[in-house]
Structures are given as C-alpha cells and as structure tokens.
Design a protein around this nucleic acid. Sequence first.
DNA 1: AAAACTTTGCAACCTGATTGCATAAACTTT
DNA 2: AAAGTTTATGCAATCAGGTTGCAAAGTTTT
Lengths: 136, 136
Amino acid sequence: MNKDTDNKLKLRNIKPTAMRQLVYDVLSKQKKALSLIEIEQQFENVDRSTIFRTLKTFQDNLLIHSVDDGTGSVKYALCDEDCTCSLNDLHIHFLCTKCGQTHCMKSMPIPNLDLPKDFSFENANFVVKGTCPNCK
Amino acid sequence: MNKDTDNKLKLRNIKPTAMRQLVYDVLSKQKKALSLIEIEQQFENVDRSTIFRTLKTFQDNLLIHSVDDGTGSVKYALCDEDCTCSLNDLHIHFLCTKCGQTHCMKSMPIPNLDLPKDFSFENANFVVKGTCPNCK
DNA sequence: AAAACTTTGCAACCTGATTGCATAAACTTT
DNA sequence: AAAGTTTATGCAATCAGGTTGCAAAGTTTT
C-alpha cells in the first residue's frame, strides 16, 4: 500500500483500489510504453479484462495516454503530472524496430501543421520507427 | 479487361490477373484509403484472403502503401506513379473523426526531425485527426 | 500435354480488444 | 451496524481484423 501511488491516483480522481495501484506501479517503473498484454504478464493471476478496464479508467482520467505504434497492440504510458492530454501535450513516439520498445519522446512535440483549407486539427498520432540507442 | 489497369500493374511487375485488376480498379476509383474489409464489401463473392494476398502483392511491389490510422483496420491507397515508398514519399494522412475517411495528404510530407543522439530514423506514420471539408 | 509454378477459395486459426453477467467489495443512508 | 446502492473485479464468451494451410483451378514452361 504505497502512499505515493495512492496520491497520484487521487489527484486524478481515481479511487485507489489495490488493482489500480498495482497497474500504476507497473507503468511507473517503466520508461517505455506497455501494452495490455505486457502489463498482464507482470502479474500471476490478474484478469485481462480487469486490467483493460483499469487502463480505460486511467485514460479517461488523463493519468495515462495511449499510442498506436502499428505493432497491433496499443501501448500505454503515464502522462506527466501536469498533462491535460490536450494539443500541447502531444508528442512523438518512437518504435524501435529491433527491440520493439516504444518510447515517449516527451521533448519532441508534434510539429505545427498548415492543413489545407477546411481541415481542422483535433489530434494526432506520430510514430517514428528506427533503431534506439540500446540497439544501435 | 481494362488495358490501362493492365499496364499499371505490369509497370510494377505484377501479373495482371482478373482479381488484381478488380482490386486495383476499386482503389483507383477512391480518393480515400480503404481497408481490407471495405474493399471486400465492394464485391459480392470474393474471398477475403484473396484480397488480403492481392494487397500484399501490391504493397510488396510498391503499387500501394498502407496507413495505420488507429481505427483498428489498416487502410490502403494507391501510390503515385513515381513512388518508391522511400522517405521522400512519406506523407501525412488525415482521418476524419466524423465520416471516418482517411485521406492521403500527398502535398504534406512528413516533417524533418531532429531525433536525440543515437536514434535513427527509418520510417514514420503520422496521422492527423480532425474534421474534413465534407463534414465541416 | 505433362510437369512446374502461381493464384484463388475455403476453412480454420490467432491475437488483441471488448462485453455480459454474476460475485465481491466499498460506500451511503437510515 | 444493517439494508440498500454503487463500483470494481473475475470469468467466460464474443468480436473483429488479420493471417495461414491446403487443395483446386488456372498459367506458364518444357
């Protein structure tokens, strides 16, 4: 029962159940973004749908954001504490084609775009693929 | 038996079977990118796996490119005639959140990026979401 | 036209995501 | 603190898109 985790959840108006604390802790221990399955594998006997719903709750409350990196499974990563999941918080994600890890490039915001007339910008998913420093 | 389609396929070293001509024609009639399922629905009695393999052949031979727009189904669109599916040919795709259509923004190349040291750039998928002119 | 290769159709399967429903746990209200 | 209400969890089942194995049909080569 981690007091710190507890607070992080409460700050986002998420009732800190045991399950949620566990999932939060898994995410916070990782620098990379994790898939539902990867999170599931961190536990022995936790049901997939529970984690699924936990992640949904987290995402609805802006505690985490998701990335579709094109590998077929959506990845999840903690947001920064001041994140509101709005345009300013969008950033590039990097998928290493060797180790398969997906990194949040929080220092690289999605670039500004001049969309053609009458196209509106709401959101964006920008995934760069290549080799990460570890696999170089 | 369309002579023109026939040539387009041959130019890419694809044997122009009836099936392939049909799939090509469906793609060329559309401005937007189409999913496997959407293509399947254009026909009465064509097997999904055949279309799947047709698309694979097309993609292997650089006749089409695919986009993962995050909707859960990969979309396919014809490449330009001079496309080599290399970095220069990468462009932004736009997913309209109202009509669900995915457009190739061929006039909008993927912007240049300064990746942190030791990250290499191989490829990128940049999908912008918003409202398209039709749905405005 | 026989042999060799390619394409197609069918059925089956896989994986990740998602839902329905019943039980369990946590809050509320009296 | 008991009864009632809401919320969270676990299990089983389902769904959708993607993908493969295999045999039949169609092509090409010899």
